[in-house]
Write a protein that binds this DNA or RNA. Structure first.
Lengths: 188, 188
DNA sequence: CGGTTGATGTCAGTCACTGACATCGGCTCG
DNA sequence: CGAGCCGATGTCAGTGACTGACATCAACCG
């Protein structure tokens, strides 16, 4: 297929993560990433819409996993229970990726533009979950709020899991966060 | 103070909102905004870090209002009640601004970069609220989750208020959203 | 082997944003 | 009132993200 080596996207993502880690996001030019991947700057922008997007290649798959899992949950379950079950299932996605998640998160948290991109991915995820809930008959604003609650739990749990040294699983942190959210919204 | 007319920031914000509304965010150059405001492009970037920021001049004041209000809430109140009271108080901020909010929101929602900026402002607000709660003795993850819950309620309520024709107040939408979140997290 | 196709390379151009330096207007102080 | 200070603005040149148009190459297809 390609003119030279295969897996151009993989090489670009690895090169970008390495360079962003070493020199920082702003100090890295698209041309440098492309060069390390054995490609040209123009080709970089054919694979990724901008310099940020190269760190979010997996976002679409994650959203798909969330949506598919939620859609497959028994219809009888209350929305929040369906969301809880979805979070637990998707957490398995990260079982072998703690170290990678830490490196990637460090890069993202070090730069405001990257944090913005992370937030819009989560917002897109929330919107997709809300749409899925609506398809299951949940009305608004319940659907939107259940989705937002799920994303809030994911954000807080994920952040704590990444900060951890790797003892507890993401699923544990997510369960803990959900329980805490329930406690908090019921007035303690 | 200024070399010419006063209120350079105000003129830039008005010119930007108008141009973004008329031609779209991407189709508007910083030079065009500056020209309409009677200034140069360089001066635009002295007042605002980038093209997006000119729409968020009020974000800092809003965050301050949130934080101050939450900090002034009686210490006895449960965190979620303090948050509810804060939301209601801050809603007054928008009483006379429905039309402005609609125009601004239409511009923001029409562009992904602007949505990203909006999201990071809300994330910053969430972090500030969580810090305020911690200062009141609330532990993590309760503090983070209460703040995230408050922001989720604000997002959903605000969105519905903006979509409304102006019958109900923002405070009503926020109260409704909070009630719905409580219902949803308690398993319906 | 010639044609097709999709990924890549090349090149020129726009625009967001920045640093360095000049200039202007108002204000203070003597 | 006039000299000088200072903050806001203007000017200019430069970097780098991103894009459109077009050429090229490698694999595949018949």
């Amino acid at each position: 297929m390609g003119r030279w080596e295969p897996n151009a996207r993989g090489r670009l993502e690895q090169a970008a993560l390495d360079l962003y880690s070493e020199h920082g996001f702003e100090q890295t030019t698209a041309a440098q990433i492309a060069e390390r991947a054995g490609l040209t700057e123009r080709t970089f922008f054919r694979h990724y819409a901008d310099k940020r997007e190269v760190l979010f290649g997996g976002a679409h798959a994650l959203e798909q996993a969330f949506v598919d899992t939620l859609a497959d949950t028994p219809a009888a379950a209350a929305p929040i229970d369906a969301m809880a079950s979805t979070l637990e299932t998707v957490a398995a996605f990260f079982l072998e990726r703690h170290e990678f998640a830490q490196q990637r998160q460090a890069v993202i948290m070090a730069n405001a533009e990257l944090r913005e991109r992370e937030l819009i991915k989560l917002a897109s995820l929330s919107a997709a979950l809300a749409a899925t809930l609506r398809r299951r008959g949940v009305k608004d604003p319940a659907a939107s709020l259940t989705a937002e609650a799920g994303i809030a739990v994911f954000k807080v749990g994920f952040e704590r899991w990444v900060a951890d040294t790797g003892q507890r699983t993401l699923a544990e942190y997510l369960r803990e966060s959900l329980d805490e959210l329930k406690a908090v919204t019921s007035g303690e």
